[in-house]
Nucleic acid binder design. Sequence first.
DNA 1: AATGAAATTTATGCCGG
DNA 2: CCGGCATAAATTTCATT
Lengths: 155, 155
Amino acid sequence: MTLDALDRRILDLYQRDTRLPAEQIGATVGLSAAAVQRRLKRLRETRVITAETAQLDCAALGLGLTAIVHVDLIDESARASHAFRDRLVARPEVQQCYGVAGNVDYVLIVVLADLAAYETFCAQCLLHDANVRSFTTQVVLEAAKRGGAVAIPAS
Amino acid sequence: MTLDALDRRILDLYQRDTRLPAEQIGATVGLSAAAVQRRLKRLRETRVITAETAQLDCAALGLGLTAIVHVDLIDESARASHAFRDRLVARPEVQQCYGVAGNVDYVLIVVLADLAAYETFCAQCLLHDANVRSFTTQVVLEAAKRGGAVAIPAS
DNA sequence: AATGAAATTTATGCCGG
DNA sequence: CCGGCATAAATTTCATT
């Protein structure tokens, strides 16, 4: 799958607002609406575009707490860490999950209603897990940029 | 702005796939297509839905490196930290930016092509900034869940 | 505030260049 | 691989209950 400069310009617009009409994207990049649609379709089929999603206002939903959690595992073998990862990824509170290099093994971004909900989450997913050596929590005071776009390199 | 149970069920479906036809959402939650559209429109206008975006495959775009960066500032006053935050949020490589409680002041998720690009980014945004006391970098080995959906509480 | 139908806009498929 | 046109689908608006 090779992406030309037009694909990249289309993606750069489209990733920020999927409601932009193809005609408007075309007017910006110098292509017809049909050509833009064709390219978007191909980008979906080849999984360059992996999902089209809506960003929600957490506060409006009653989700007042975002936490960044660092988890250190005891058994870091592939089998054990994948089991941990799979269990966490399946939890709806876990918005993001990254396996990282270094001291700590996983970084989670967890979105919940309040501290009580966080306590429940910890009890169920972390304290209860014999493979979790330790974890630390950072409470987010301000989400200055959340689930943002990505910088698309030139070529 | 008050959200009823139907709004929440609609959002739960819609946040994962904005290409779901309103008719299909309606069939699931027990509403007509027009009613679903009307609610989505209101949810957009009231900014419960803050954006409709596309998730892209970073690897396909040549973005091979994701890093989680913790930044400790010297001057943590509102003026100084907001200046730092605004500068970083404006950078396209900075996909996410969170102000957190605790030792460290900001957590960034940065998406770039490679380590060379990261070095440039650090030089421009962190090393160069007199208000950055220190920062640490975690290299993401595996993004198990990226920019995911959020768990919508019952009421 | 929801429904159903009409009107508009947007997307898809096909053909010629 | 593009543009243009025809077709199909989805969204928006409006009248009605």
